[in-house]
Design a protein around this nucleic acid. Structure first.
Lengths: 246, 246
DNA sequence: CCCCTTCGGTTCGTTGGCGAACAGACATCC
DNA sequence: GGATGTCTGTTCGCCAACGAACCGAAGGGG
């Protein structure tokens, strides 16, 4: 068990880079050897779109660093984020159950890198690895719980709390205290207008929880920020308990 | 293929009742015989609570008629519905991936009946039926898509549209034009106050789409109601395409 | 028959959030 | 150093939604 852990922590991609993605690290060694040759290292700059709603999903992505958002778009051009995926999961969940498209846009929020695998090759691998299949299906469910909590949060809580929640969830998946996001972008994620975000961010700043810099938000006091956030943050954190997030 | 269909449509529970649940009908015959002896018929009166957040899920439920809601509760006593489950799915999705509890309350919305199976027995069955496992996991994903759409809807659309959407989704899963729900209950589902519901329902009534009776809403004009609903209704309907809902 | 509960309809004052708009700060490029 | 574009801070008027409250109607039980 201990040896397995050590082995996991030094698992490498074909390109030689260390793997940090929790899903990949949790695959049993024998099954990892099945998938490893098909993995392809990929750089993931901010705003890169990984999947579009209704379009064929070519690759499954496993992040090592950075942060992707699942976003629902409406016909009038507005948008809301419904889930966040970092190194704890997988992007392209429909592939896990043999479907080839989903209804959301998946977009890189914070730059990073990861590994990708052709959908057809993932499917082949899944047929020989029930363990991987279980891991992915479990992630699909957990992600559903996260989405449900955000659904409730979107309805019941106010912008200030939701902003605090978002900043915390974001920082949980990034090393730094500096989150490179603009208010405009936050507005799209929170499904609101930009002035509302600036207003809420101003309040948090005056309470010295954060500092608003140009194009980035700096976390000054995590503890106070957690108090300002709604219970949804704790709830989501709890779902992810087994997935290696904090 | 055709014979299979005919067989499916006459599949019966141990109690002798006909099965209408789409998940159960789609299980291959050989695997259905595995699960059949463990199924137990159950009557499902309105307001019956099937699962509570954080508590052990004893049974998986497969509805034949009626309608259940997944509801997220907050600490201040408010609530929102995040998904609806009828005969197209399963209640107790965490069991499908070997987890034993979830974060939502599952409550019967419209009276009905169904079949249930002990969680331990379902788990045993799953180990011998990859087909059933795939069907359930696929449902878990589809339900996630539904929740995501509702998450967006909760944020971006107004009560009137959301109410119309809810009524349509409800009627899709019930034979009658009469939906036995109170405004108070609708308020809890839509995560809003009761007056807001009465107001919106009044508008829909004056447009002769519905009629508000005591304790029930009558659908008068489905077509107009669909026009009044937001795009989310169509989207969710589309996800369920393969699941036997309309 | 009357009482009592449940529900629907409506009101009213308050508020959070929205969209549009503008001004100032900062960064980059020439 | 000046011009341009991006980003933040802030204002203002407007509207949807909220919570509390009250009334009246409908239904059920004694």
């Amino acid at each position: 068990m201990e040896r397995q852990k050590i082995h996991n922590s030094t698992r490498t991609a074909p390109s030689g880079g260390a793997i940090k993605n929790v899903v990949l690290l949790n695959i049993p060694a024998k099954d990892f050897s099945l998938i490893r040759p098909h993995l392809e290292a990929i750089d993931l700059p901010p705003q890169l779109i990984l999947d579009e709603p209704g379009e064929n999903i070519e690759y499954a992505h496993f992040l090592n660093e950075g942060l992707a958002s699942l976003v629902v778009l409406t016909s009038d051009g507005r948008s809301v984020e419904v889930a966040i995926v970092g190194k704890e999961g997988m992007v392209g969940t429909p592939l896990a159950v043999g479907l080839d498209r989903g209804p959301y846009r998946t977009i890189m929020q914070i730059a990073g890198s990861g590994l990708r695998i052709k959908s057809r090759l993932l499917e082949q691998t899944l047929q020989h690895s029930p363990e991987l299949r279980l891991i992915l299906n479990r992630f699909v469910l957990i992600q559903g719980l996260q989405i449900a909590q955000i659904a409730a949060c979107n309805r019941l809580h106010e912008i200030e709390q939701r902003l605090a929640r978002w900043l915390l969830m974001c920082q949980d998946r990034v090393e730094s205290d500096l989150l490179p996001v603009t208010h405009e972008f936050l507005a799209q994620m929170l499904g609101t207008g930009r002035p509302s975000v600036s207003l809420a961010a101003g309040i948090l700043q005056r309470a010295s929880m954060i500092e608003n810099l140009r194009g980035t938000v700096k976390i000054l006091n995590r503890k106070k920020l957690e108090e300002a956030a709604c219970e949804c943050y704790r709830a989501i954190q709890h779902f992810n308990g087994g997935l290696g997030i904090r």
